[in-house]
């Protein structure tokens, strides 16, 4: 019974896959020394980037509040900013986590698809939470700056423009992610219908 689905389309595909395999079988893809060197370099790069993200985030958490305080912002604003930065760092590292290599080598496709969907959903939800949070922070920043700057308008305007651009990018990204999430979900549901 298995593999007896008779179909001219499938027969044609079998012939075509044989042609593909025949073409590939005569090819040497890469030298093994070059292969190992490239693999090791890439794994090192992955580790370096992960360390950079963590240490870069920690540096920002330490430096930014000190800089704000030295400019003249209030202590309450500096503390609030510090808390927000810590929350953002933790959430960013969580949102940008990749599927670990054990999951990729062991899980079946449906289970993996569900995990991808979960990661993307968390990221989409984070964008919706972070935009109002940053807007509120900016309002506080503008008010706090107006307390010690004699001409705060240019300073605040520059920040506002950056904030609006970032907000628009965030919303567009959120909409794109929602579409990807729904597509994965439809595929999984379709597959498990029977």
């Amino acid at each position: 019974m298995e593999n007896n689905i008779i179909s001219s389309e499938f027969d044609q595909m079998r012939e075509q896959i044989s042609l593909l395999k025949a073409k590939l079988s005569h090819q040497t893809i890469i030298s093994e020394k070059h292969l190992m060197r490239t693999i090791r370099e890439n794994v090192s790069k992955i580790n370096r980037m992960r360390n950079f993200s963590v240490f870069g985030g920690i540096f920002a958490i330490i430096y930014c509040p000190v800089a704000f305080y030295r400019i003249g912002h209030s202590l309450s604003f500096v503390i609030g900013t510090e808390v927000m930065l810590i929350v953002c760092l933790v959430c960013t590292l969580w949102m940008h986590r990749k599927l670990d290599v054990q999951t990729i080598s062991i899980d079946n496709l449906v289970s993996l698809g569900a995990k991808i969907q979960t990661i993307k959903r968390h990221y989409a939800n984070w964008i919706i939470i972070s935009i109002p949070m940053i807007a509120a922070w900016f309002g506080w920043f503008a008010y706090d700056a107006s307390q010690f700057l004699s001409a705060p308008i240019p300073f605040i305007t520059a920040g506002l423009i950056g904030g609006v651009i970032g907000g628009v990018i965030g919303v567009v990204r959120h909409i794109t992610l929602r579409r990807e999430i729904n597509q994965i979900l439809d595929n999984i549901n379709d597959l498990q219908e029977h």
Partner: peptide, 26 residues
């Protein structure tokens, strides 16, 4: 990692490559 292959399945135009492209498209 560049694959040191003498075929380019996206650009080759022989009969077999065309069949393979059809498979890829489907």
């Amino acid at each position: 990692l560049p694959l040191d292959m003498q075929i380019n399945l996206y650009e080759d135009t022989d009969h077999d490559s065309k069949q393979i492209k059809m498979l890829h498209e489907r």
